[in-house]
Design a binder for these strands. Structure first.
Lengths: 160, 160
DNA sequence: CTCGCTGCAAAGCTTTTGCACTAGA
DNA sequence: TCTAGTGCAAAAGCTTTGCAGCGAG
Protein backbone atom coordinates (compact mmCIF):
# COMPACT_ATOMS: atom_id res chain seq x y z
CA UNK A 1 0.00 0.00 0.00
CA UNK A 2 1.64 3.24 -1.14
CA UNK A 3 -0.28 5.16 1.49
CA UNK A 4 1.95 3.93 4.26
CA UNK A 5 4.98 5.16 2.40
CA UNK A 6 3.36 8.54 1.90
CA UNK A 7 2.46 8.78 5.57
CA UNK A 8 5.99 7.92 6.45
CA UNK A 9 7.49 10.40 4.06
CA UNK A 10 5.19 13.13 5.33
CA UNK A 11 6.07 12.51 8.95
CA UNK A 12 9.74 12.57 8.13
CA UNK A 13 9.23 15.87 6.34
CA UNK A 14 7.81 17.27 9.52
CA UNK A 15 10.86 16.13 11.40
CA UNK A 16 13.25 17.48 8.79
CA UNK A 17 11.63 20.86 9.22
CA UNK A 18 12.51 20.86 12.88
CA UNK A 19 9.24 19.35 14.07
CA UNK A 20 8.49 16.23 16.06
CA UNK A 21 6.65 13.07 15.27
CA UNK A 22 3.92 12.50 17.81
CA UNK A 23 1.04 10.07 18.13
CA UNK A 24 -1.58 12.73 17.30
CA UNK A 25 0.33 13.90 14.26
CA UNK A 26 0.80 10.37 13.05
CA UNK A 27 -2.88 9.63 13.34
CA UNK A 28 -3.94 12.88 11.73
CA UNK A 29 -1.59 12.43 8.80
CA UNK A 30 -2.64 8.82 8.33
CA UNK A 31 -6.31 9.72 8.39
CA UNK A 32 -5.87 12.59 6.00
CA UNK A 33 -3.90 10.56 3.48
CA UNK A 34 -6.19 7.59 3.76
CA UNK A 35 -9.29 9.77 3.49
CA UNK A 36 -11.47 10.89 0.67
CA UNK A 37 -9.22 13.70 -0.36
CA UNK A 38 -11.65 16.43 0.70
CA UNK A 39 -12.06 16.72 4.42
CA UNK A 40 -12.92 19.66 6.61
CA UNK A 41 -11.01 20.04 9.84
CA UNK A 42 -14.05 18.88 11.73
CA UNK A 43 -14.57 15.80 9.56
CA UNK A 44 -10.93 14.95 9.88
CA UNK A 45 -11.15 15.31 13.65
CA UNK A 46 -14.20 13.05 13.74
CA UNK A 47 -12.40 10.32 11.87
CA UNK A 48 -9.30 10.65 13.99
CA UNK A 49 -11.49 10.33 17.05
CA UNK A 50 -12.49 6.85 16.00
CA UNK A 51 -9.02 5.69 16.90
CA UNK A 52 -8.20 8.32 19.48
CA UNK A 53 -10.98 10.52 20.88
CA UNK A 54 -8.64 12.60 22.99
CA UNK A 55 -7.07 14.40 20.05
CA UNK A 56 -8.35 17.94 20.17
CA UNK A 57 -9.51 19.76 17.06
CA UNK A 58 -6.99 22.48 17.86
CA UNK A 59 -4.30 19.93 17.28
CA UNK A 60 -5.89 19.02 13.97
CA UNK A 61 -5.78 22.65 12.88
CA UNK A 62 -2.19 23.05 14.01
CA UNK A 63 -1.07 19.89 12.27
CA UNK A 64 -2.82 20.90 9.06
CA UNK A 65 -1.15 24.26 9.33
CA UNK A 66 2.25 22.65 9.71
CA UNK A 67 1.59 20.38 6.74
CA UNK A 68 0.51 23.32 4.67
CA UNK A 69 3.69 25.19 5.44
CA UNK A 70 5.58 22.12 4.26
CA UNK A 71 3.65 22.26 1.01
CA UNK A 72 2.10 18.84 1.58
CA UNK A 73 -1.44 20.07 2.05
CA UNK A 74 -3.63 22.84 0.66
CA UNK A 75 -6.88 24.19 1.98
CA UNK A 76 -9.79 25.47 -0.07
CA UNK A 77 -12.62 27.65 1.20
CA UNK A 78 -16.05 26.43 0.25
CA UNK A 79 -17.85 29.63 1.04
CA UNK A 80 -18.68 31.44 4.22
CA UNK A 81 -17.31 29.14 6.83
CA UNK A 82 -15.82 25.74 6.30
CA UNK A 83 -12.64 24.98 4.46
CA UNK A 84 -11.54 21.63 3.13
CA UNK A 85 -8.05 20.20 3.04
CA UNK A 86 -6.48 18.05 0.35
CA UNK A 87 -3.06 16.82 -0.64
CA UNK A 88 -1.09 19.44 -2.53
CA UNK A 89 0.18 17.07 -5.19
CA UNK A 90 -3.39 16.66 -6.39
CA UNK A 91 -3.78 19.94 -8.29
CA UNK A 92 -7.35 20.82 -9.15
CA UNK A 93 -10.04 23.41 -8.65
CA UNK A 94 -13.34 22.77 -6.89
CA UNK A 95 -17.00 23.12 -7.77
CA UNK A 96 -19.07 23.26 -4.62
CA UNK A 97 -22.80 22.68 -4.72
CA UNK A 98 -24.30 25.08 -2.22
CA UNK A 99 -27.43 23.00 -2.05
CA UNK A 100 -26.18 19.50 -1.24
CA UNK A 101 -22.56 20.22 -0.39
CA UNK A 102 -21.11 17.97 -3.07
CA UNK A 103 -17.61 18.81 -4.24
CA UNK A 104 -16.50 18.15 -7.81
CA UNK A 105 -13.00 18.55 -9.14
CA UNK A 106 -12.12 20.31 -12.36
CA UNK A 107 -8.76 20.66 -14.09
CA UNK A 108 -7.07 24.04 -13.68
CA UNK A 109 -6.50 24.12 -17.42
CA UNK A 110 -10.18 24.86 -17.83
CA UNK A 111 -9.59 28.34 -16.48
CA UNK A 112 -6.32 29.01 -18.25
CA UNK A 113 -7.97 31.13 -20.91
CA UNK A 114 -9.91 33.35 -18.56
CA UNK A 115 -6.95 33.62 -16.28
CA UNK A 116 -4.71 34.78 -19.11
CA UNK A 117 -7.29 37.32 -20.19
CA UNK A 118 -7.55 38.74 -16.70
CA UNK A 119 -3.81 38.98 -16.49
CA UNK A 120 -3.49 40.70 -19.86
CA UNK A 121 -6.41 43.07 -19.61
CA UNK A 122 -6.45 43.91 -15.91
CA UNK A 123 -2.94 43.07 -14.83
CA UNK A 124 -4.53 40.97 -12.11
CA UNK A 125 -3.09 37.63 -11.05
CA UNK A 126 -5.84 35.34 -9.85
CA UNK A 127 -5.43 32.61 -7.26
CA UNK A 128 -8.35 30.46 -8.31
CA UNK A 129 -7.32 27.43 -6.30
CA UNK A 130 -7.95 28.95 -2.91
CA UNK A 131 -11.71 29.33 -3.15
CA UNK A 132 -14.19 26.87 -4.57
CA UNK A 133 -16.54 27.84 -7.37
CA UNK A 134 -20.02 27.94 -5.92
CA UNK A 135 -23.13 26.82 -7.71
CA UNK A 136 -25.57 23.98 -8.19
CA UNK A 137 -24.73 20.44 -9.23
CA UNK A 138 -26.70 18.63 -11.87
CA UNK A 139 -29.00 16.74 -9.55
CA UNK A 140 -29.87 19.78 -7.48
CA UNK A 141 -30.70 21.70 -10.64
CA UNK A 142 -32.99 18.89 -11.72
CA UNK A 143 -34.67 19.06 -8.36
CA UNK A 144 -35.54 22.63 -9.28
CA UNK A 145 -33.48 24.16 -6.51
CA UNK A 146 -31.27 26.32 -8.66
CA UNK A 147 -32.83 29.67 -9.26
CA UNK A 148 -31.83 32.27 -11.79
CA UNK A 149 -29.93 35.35 -10.78
CA UNK A 150 -26.78 35.04 -12.78
CA UNK A 151 -26.06 37.92 -15.10
CA UNK A 152 -24.60 35.46 -17.57
CA UNK A 153 -28.03 34.39 -18.65
CA UNK A 154 -29.21 36.27 -21.66
CA UNK A 155 -27.53 37.63 -24.78
CA UNK A 156 -23.84 38.29 -24.58
CA UNK A 157 -23.92 41.88 -23.48
CA UNK A 158 -20.44 43.14 -24.06
CA UNK A 159 -16.93 42.26 -24.85
CA UNK A 160 -14.49 43.57 -22.32
CA UNK B 1 -30.25 63.83 -9.48
CA UNK B 2 -31.52 60.38 -10.43
CA UNK B 3 -30.37 59.03 -7.07
CA UNK B 4 -33.31 60.56 -5.25
CA UNK B 5 -35.71 58.84 -7.60
CA UNK B 6 -33.94 55.52 -7.06
CA UNK B 7 -34.06 55.93 -3.31
CA UNK B 8 -37.72 56.70 -3.54
CA UNK B 9 -38.46 53.76 -5.78
CA UNK B 10 -36.54 51.43 -3.50
CA UNK B 11 -38.38 52.56 -0.40
CA UNK B 12 -41.70 52.11 -2.14
CA UNK B 13 -40.65 48.61 -3.15
CA UNK B 14 -40.10 47.84 0.50
CA UNK B 15 -43.59 49.06 1.27
CA UNK B 16 -45.15 47.15 -1.61
CA UNK B 17 -43.62 44.00 -0.20
CA UNK B 18 -45.45 44.53 3.06
CA UNK B 19 -42.68 46.41 4.77
CA UNK B 20 -42.57 49.83 6.34
CA UNK B 21 -40.65 52.95 5.54
CA UNK B 22 -38.72 54.12 8.56
CA UNK B 23 -36.08 56.75 9.19
CA UNK B 24 -33.28 54.20 9.57
CA UNK B 25 -34.26 52.42 6.37
CA UNK B 26 -34.46 55.67 4.50
CA UNK B 27 -31.01 56.70 5.63
CA UNK B 28 -29.48 53.33 4.94
CA UNK B 29 -30.96 53.14 1.45
CA UNK B 30 -29.89 56.69 0.67
CA UNK B 31 -26.36 56.05 1.85
CA UNK B 32 -26.08 52.81 -0.06
CA UNK B 33 -27.33 54.28 -3.32
CA UNK B 34 -25.25 57.39 -2.96
CA UNK B 35 -22.17 55.40 -2.01
CA UNK B 36 -19.24 54.02 -3.88
CA UNK B 37 -21.04 50.91 -4.99
CA UNK B 38 -18.91 48.58 -2.89
CA UNK B 39 -19.57 48.89 0.79
CA UNK B 40 -19.29 46.39 3.58
CA UNK B 41 -22.02 46.41 6.20
CA UNK B 42 -19.62 48.03 8.59
CA UNK B 43 -18.58 50.76 6.16
CA UNK B 44 -22.19 51.43 5.36
CA UNK B 45 -22.99 51.68 9.06
CA UNK B 46 -20.12 54.12 9.56
CA UNK B 47 -21.40 56.41 6.84
CA UNK B 48 -24.95 56.22 8.09
CA UNK B 49 -23.69 57.16 11.53
CA UNK B 50 -22.50 60.48 10.18
CA UNK B 51 -26.11 61.55 9.92
CA UNK B 52 -27.56 59.32 12.62
CA UNK B 53 -25.23 57.56 15.06
CA UNK B 54 -28.01 55.72 16.79
CA UNK B 55 -28.69 53.36 13.89
CA UNK B 56 -27.42 49.96 14.96
CA UNK B 57 -25.41 47.74 12.62
CA UNK B 58 -28.01 45.04 13.18
CA UNK B 59 -30.50 47.30 11.47
CA UNK B 60 -28.09 47.76 8.60
CA UNK B 61 -27.82 44.00 8.15
CA UNK B 62 -31.57 43.55 8.35
CA UNK B 63 -32.23 46.32 5.87
CA UNK B 64 -29.67 44.93 3.45
CA UNK B 65 -31.28 41.54 3.84
CA UNK B 66 -34.69 42.98 3.03
CA UNK B 67 -33.30 44.78 0.00
CA UNK B 68 -31.63 41.63 -1.17
CA UNK B 69 -34.87 39.71 -0.97
CA UNK B 70 -36.42 42.42 -3.10
CA UNK B 71 -33.67 41.90 -5.65
CA UNK B 72 -32.41 45.46 -5.28
CA UNK B 73 -29.11 44.55 -3.68
CA UNK B 74 -26.58 41.73 -3.97
CA UNK B 75 -23.78 40.83 -1.65
CA UNK B 76 -20.41 39.43 -2.62
CA UNK B 77 -17.99 37.60 -0.35
CA UNK B 78 -14.44 38.83 -0.58
CA UNK B 79 -12.89 35.88 1.14
CA UNK B 80 -12.89 34.64 4.67
CA UNK B 81 -14.87 37.28 6.42
CA UNK B 82 -16.23 40.48 5.01
CA UNK B 83 -18.87 40.76 2.35
CA UNK B 84 -19.63 43.80 0.24
CA UNK B 85 -22.99 45.01 -0.98
CA UNK B 86 -23.84 46.62 -4.30
CA UNK B 87 -26.89 47.46 -6.34
CA UNK B 88 -28.20 44.48 -8.24
CA UNK B 89 -28.75 46.38 -11.47
CA UNK B 90 -25.01 46.87 -11.67
CA UNK B 91 -24.06 43.39 -12.91
CA UNK B 92 -20.38 42.59 -12.64
CA UNK B 93 -17.94 40.21 -11.05
CA UNK B 94 -15.20 41.21 -8.66
CA UNK B 95 -11.44 40.84 -8.52
CA UNK B 96 -10.24 41.23 -4.95
CA UNK B 97 -6.60 41.89 -4.19
CA UNK B 98 -5.82 39.95 -1.05
CA UNK B 99 -2.81 42.12 -0.43
CA UNK B 100 -4.17 45.67 -0.53
CA UNK B 101 -7.90 45.00 -0.51
CA UNK B 102 -8.59 46.77 -3.79
CA UNK B 103 -11.70 45.66 -5.67
CA UNK B 104 -11.85 45.72 -9.46
CA UNK B 105 -14.89 45.03 -11.55
CA UNK B 106 -14.94 42.76 -14.57
CA UNK B 107 -17.77 42.06 -17.00
CA UNK B 108 -19.58 38.75 -16.52
CA UNK B 109 -19.21 38.08 -20.24
CA UNK B 110 -15.55 37.39 -19.58
CA UNK B 111 -16.53 34.16 -17.87
CA UNK B 112 -19.26 33.13 -20.26
CA UNK B 113 -17.04 30.64 -22.07
CA UNK B 114 -15.79 28.88 -18.96
CA UNK B 115 -19.24 28.90 -17.50
CA UNK B 116 -20.71 27.25 -20.58
CA UNK B 117 -17.98 24.63 -20.56
CA UNK B 118 -18.62 23.80 -16.92
CA UNK B 119 -22.33 23.51 -17.64
CA UNK B 120 -21.79 21.27 -20.65
CA UNK B 121 -19.07 19.04 -19.29
CA UNK B 122 -20.00 18.82 -15.62
CA UNK B 123 -23.67 19.74 -15.61
CA UNK B 124 -22.76 22.27 -12.96
CA UNK B 125 -24.35 25.70 -12.83
CA UNK B 126 -21.92 28.18 -11.36
CA UNK B 127 -22.89 31.29 -9.44
CA UNK B 128 -19.73 33.25 -10.07
CA UNK B 129 -21.18 36.52 -8.88
CA UNK B 130 -21.46 35.51 -5.25
CA UNK B 131 -17.76 35.26 -4.48
CA UNK B 132 -15.00 37.55 -5.59
CA UNK B 133 -12.03 36.22 -7.51
CA UNK B 134 -9.06 36.43 -5.21
CA UNK B 135 -5.57 37.33 -6.28
CA UNK B 136 -3.06 40.12 -6.59
CA UNK B 137 -3.55 43.43 -8.36
CA UNK B 138 -0.94 44.84 -10.68
CA UNK B 139 0.70 47.13 -8.18
CA UNK B 140 0.99 44.49 -5.49
CA UNK B 141 2.57 42.12 -8.00
CA UNK B 142 5.09 44.79 -8.91
CA UNK B 143 5.87 45.19 -5.25
CA UNK B 144 6.87 41.55 -5.36
CA UNK B 145 4.18 40.42 -2.99
CA UNK B 146 2.54 37.87 -5.26
CA UNK B 147 4.13 34.50 -4.90
CA UNK B 148 3.74 31.49 -7.17
CA UNK B 149 1.64 28.54 -6.21
CA UNK B 150 -0.96 28.45 -8.94
CA UNK B 151 -1.09 25.24 -10.93
CA UNK B 152 -1.80 27.32 -14.01
CA UNK B 153 1.80 28.35 -14.23
CA UNK B 154 3.73 26.21 -16.61
CA UNK B 155 3.27 25.03 -20.18
CA UNK B 156 -0.26 25.30 -21.50
CA UNK B 157 -1.43 21.85 -20.69
CA UNK B 158 -4.64 21.48 -22.64
CA UNK B 159 -7.88 23.01 -23.68
CA UNK B 160 -10.18 20.63 -21.95
C1' DC C 1 -54.73 48.92 17.05
C1' DT C 2 -51.43 45.61 14.84
C1' DC C 3 -47.64 43.97 13.33
C1' DG C 4 -43.21 45.13 11.43
C1' DC C 5 -38.89 47.53 12.76
C1' DT C 6 -35.35 48.83 16.11
C1' DG C 7 -31.61 48.71 19.55
C1' DC C 8 -29.20 45.96 22.64
C1' DA C 9 -27.13 41.88 24.14
C1' DA C 10 -25.93 37.50 23.28
C1' DA C 11 -25.28 33.54 20.44
C1' DG C 12 -23.29 31.10 16.34
C1' DC C 13 -19.60 29.17 13.43
C1' DT C 14 -15.06 28.22 12.11
C1' DT C 15 -10.43 29.10 13.22
C1' DT C 16 -6.77 31.06 16.23
C1' DT C 17 -4.32 32.12 20.50
C1' DG C 18 -2.71 32.01 25.51
C1' DC C 19 -1.21 29.03 28.96
C1' DA C 20 0.57 25.41 31.63
C1' DC C 21 1.80 20.68 31.09
C1' DT C 22 3.61 16.63 28.51
C1' DA C 23 6.81 14.33 25.87
C1' DG C 24 9.93 13.75 21.59
C1' DA C 25 14.89 13.71 20.28
C1' DT D 1 17.51 18.69 29.12
C1' DC D 2 15.28 21.68 25.95
C1' DT D 3 11.97 23.00 23.03
C1' DA D 4 7.96 21.61 20.22
C1' DG D 5 3.42 19.74 20.62
C1' DT D 6 -0.95 19.11 23.20
C1' DG D 7 -5.49 19.88 25.47
C1' DC D 8 -8.46 23.15 27.27
C1' DA D 9 -10.65 27.49 27.46
C1' DA D 10 -11.34 31.67 25.66
C1' DA D 11 -11.07 35.02 21.98
C1' DA D 12 -11.56 36.73 17.33
C1' DG D 13 -14.28 38.31 13.34
C1' DC D 14 -18.52 38.75 10.86
C1' DT D 15 -23.37 37.96 10.92
C1' DT D 16 -27.74 36.40 12.97
C1' DT D 17 -31.24 35.89 16.56
C1' DG D 18 -34.16 36.65 20.89
C1' DC D 19 -36.57 39.98 23.17
C1' DA D 20 -39.18 43.88 24.69
C1' DG D 21 -40.57 48.40 23.32
C1' DC D 22 -41.61 51.76 19.60
C1' DG D 23 -43.93 53.48 15.74
C1' DA D 24 -45.78 53.11 10.70
C1' DG D 25 -49.99 52.52 8.41
Amino acid sequence: MPEDALVDRTLRSLRSAGGRITKPREQIVRTLIGGSGHLSAEELAERVHQSNPSIHITTVYRTLDALERLGVVNHVHLGHGRAIYHLANDAHYHLYCQECGKIEEVPPSLFAGVDRKITQEWGFKTVLSHFAFIGFCRSCQESGLAGGGEPLAGPASAGG
